[in-house]
């Protein structure tokens, strides 16, 4: 089992915000004390969001190669405590962060021959850290596939980045799937389950990484197990 860095308390400050579309906002935080954050792609951090001790967790979506800052991307449509806390932050305002945490990382041992990532909605966030890290920094030559399910094309973020990665790295394949696509949408329609059902999945020892709501994860797990995939090959991170 890979050695995970122990979580620590950090003070960070809001350095930048970027609305990616009408649904998602990216927040960048600069580390203050300690001033470096070591994490493994796929891990998350926990923000203190009230003076009652309430916390909210978000996957880090930036590269682990960048240690003086980190980014999170948040679906702002459920206007809960965490979203309102983040949206009300002023530039330079300090926050208390605990991290890194989480075991949703690419397994090193036993090594999987191929990697399939499946996300719905904001569940793509950890994959935005994991996939470029695999392809660029680790020069991973395994077949790596990302299925990402959303409702509408206007909900999509990072599609140019993922498509550029697919162009630059022939071993990476990107399959966005829209459940409420307009007629002119040329790619996969329906839910990610539908796409996985009709696509030929890689043979051999393939690792499946699922991230999204609990219902999706349960459905995809059952689909994969029915297709003969071992349960030990299926890893998940539930967003709620």
């Amino acid at each position: 089992m890979q050695q995970l860095p122990p979580p620590k308390q950090y003070v960070a400050k809001l350095a930048d915000t970027e609305p990616l579309n009408g649904k998602f906002i990216k927040f960048q935080f600069e580390l203050v004390e300690p001033n470096l954050l070591e994490f493994i792609a796929g891990q998350y951090v926990s923000f203190l969001v009230s003076d009652k001790g309430e916390r909210r967790s978000y996957s880090i979506c930036s590269s682990p190669e960048v240690k003086h800052s980190f980014e999170i991307t948040v679906d702002t449509t459920p206007e809960g405590l965490g979203v309102n806390f983040l949206k009300n932050l002023q530039f330079g305002q300090e926050v208390q962060v605990l991290g890194p945490m989480g075991v949703f990382i690419v397994q090193e041992e036993p090594r999987e021959e191929n990697l399939v990532f499946v996300a719905t909605g904001s569940g793509v966030a950890p994959f935005h850290s994991m996939i470029p890290n695999l392809l660029r920094e680790k020069e991973d030559k395994r077949e790596i596939t990302l299925y990402w399910g959303l409702r509408h094309e206007e909900d999509m973020i990072w599609q140019d980045e993922f498509q550029d990665l697919a162009q630059a790295f022939p071993n990476f394949h990107f399959h966005p799937v829209l459940s409420q696509a307009l007629q002119e949408w040329p790619l996969c329609r329906g839910h990610v389950n539908d796409c996985l059902n009709i696509h030929t999945l890689p043979t051999g020892n393939t690792g499946y990484y699922l991230c999204g709501n609990a219902k999706m994860i349960q459905e995809i797990k059952e689909l994969l197990i029915n297709k003969g995939i071992a349960e030990t090959a299926i890893h998940h991170e539930k967003f709620y």
Partner: peptide, 8 residues
């Protein structure tokens, strides 16, 4: 949900 923050 197995987020594992408590174990960390």
């Amino acid at each position: 949900i197995g987020a594992a923050s408590c174990t960390a």
